[in-house]
Design a binder for these strands. Structure first.
Lengths: 111, 111
DNA sequence: CGCTAATATTAGCGTAATCTAATATTAAAT
DNA sequence: ATTTAATATTAGATTACGCTAATATTAGCG
């Protein structure tokens, strides 16, 4: 499943935006999403599962709670995909910045 | 229309990947997409229109041909969206690189 | 142990997205 | 002026997706 297929849904993006700020319980996620989209707990839970299955989020149990965290790996794929377009908005990147960017990218694939 | 909604389709991504390498006629796009997805000219043309309407591509006429080009602005939105996650994979960005990144982002919104 | 709270799952429905098939448009070529 | 090539458009069918409603699971509490 391509990363963009997962991100092509506003509810899932909303969840990830929340998780970008740190770990949150399923209940927290439901509350936030419900306020913004007015959908049921069930629907949110289903989206959380999709994010889990696709590797965008991880869970750990805390009693009866489930604590979700963002998993950055899949989002890096998006970043990598964008690389082919960066030349468009960075037409004259100075040498130093190029080195930094290149180093970042290399590291990414070594890890 | 959110940028991710547009990118959440494999055919549209395929088209943009091609346009990332430079301008191409509608016919070129059709040929490439057809080889990969086996869909009709009509379907490709419809996707080209979606990309145009959403601002991901631009067209100019050349006789009876339509020459398409990638438009980077909307893709930057994706880059911006990712900013909130970069902390995950760049936990200890050195000061210089941080400056470069910050400058880039500032410029982005000034233009 | 029974109850409640937190979350997940399943089945089925409705809608939106995308495809095909057919047709329209436009420009050049003969 | 026809005809052909390149592309776009429209209408309708099909599929895929996300939602609700109902139900299941699991942990803690009294």
């Amino acid at each position: 499943m391509h990363a963009f297929d997962i991100l092509g849904d506003p509810v899932r993006r909303c969840i990830l935006e929340l998780l970008a700020t740190g770990e949150h319980s399923s209940g927290d996620v439901v509350a936030v999403v419900q306020r913004e989209f007015g959908i049921t707990q069930s629907a949110v839970s289903q989206q959380l599962r999709i994010l889990r299955d696709a590797g965008f989020a991880s869970v750990r149990a805390d009693g009866t709670r489930r604590i979700y965290a963002a998993e950055p790996a899949r989002l890096r794929e998006v970043d990598d995909w964008l690389d082919r377009f960066r030349a468009f908005w960075l037409p004259r990147l100075d040498a130093l910045a190029t080195e930094v960017a290149r180093g970042k990218r290399k590291r990414r694939h070594r890890e």
